[in-house]
Design a protein around this nucleic acid. Sequence first.
DNA 1: TACAATACTGTATGTCACACAGTATAATTA
DNA 2: TAATTATACTGTGTGACATACAGTATTGTA
Lengths: 114, 114
Amino acid sequence: MKDNLLFTSLVSELKRGNLTLCVLSQLKTPQYGYSLLQTLSEQHIEIEANTLYPMLRRLESQGLLDSSWDTTESRPRKFYSLSTQGQTLFIDLLKAWKEQNKQTALLLGEESHA
Amino acid sequence: MKDNLLFTSLVSELKRGNLTLCVLSQLKTPQYGYSLLQTLSEQHIEIEANTLYPMLRRLESQGLLDSSWDTTESRPRKFYSLSTQGQTLFIDLLKAWKEQNKQTALLLGEESHA
DNA sequence: TACAATACTGTATGTCACACAGTATAATTA
DNA sequence: TAATTATACTGTGTGACATACAGTATTGTA
């Protein structure tokens, strides 16, 4: 719809924090990168491999995710899941997301019928 | 509530794109930095001066805002308002925001009663 | 047997929120 | 009337992140 570069980058900024929340929400049960990519895509959450893989490594290094390699299948897969800290943080982050959305919607709502 | 640094930075990421949208929404009528700071604060949108001022300059340099100095009052004030391009972009960005929120809410909603 | 799909790693770039530092005037208060 | 606070900005640096680009290697399929 919009081939405007500026628009694209603003939408990207819009997605930024949301993507982390979405990924965390999916990792109550272990998943590996590629499966997450597909799950999220099916749920209409667009995230690129180039974004997801670094993000998973980052979240692990921050202590929010645990990981382990599964080598029993045909192909080695790195499974990630929420650590204890990750679970707690996800709950708080979800709360923050809801609160922020509520306030933003109020602001934009008032504007929209002005 | 949370003095956790990691949590703080994740919330900050969450706000990132939203703040731009909020600021754009307020500039259908001209406002200056300091007044915006107060308006947004009253509407429970937390944004720091250190964030807002560079953002206004950025949005102007990107062509989304026009600006003009008002020197008739006691204190010089730089007024910003949406440019034509800014108006169009705001409408598209608002659409993108709504769509993204809908999809995210669906994903998180399904998770929350799992 | 070539090609697409799967499943990653590693590095570089540009943008942004925010910190920190600074300038300067008006209004308030002690 | 002197000190302080609120107003109203500019400028620069840092760290985090999304994404681009490049690469590795295996499996399934046409």
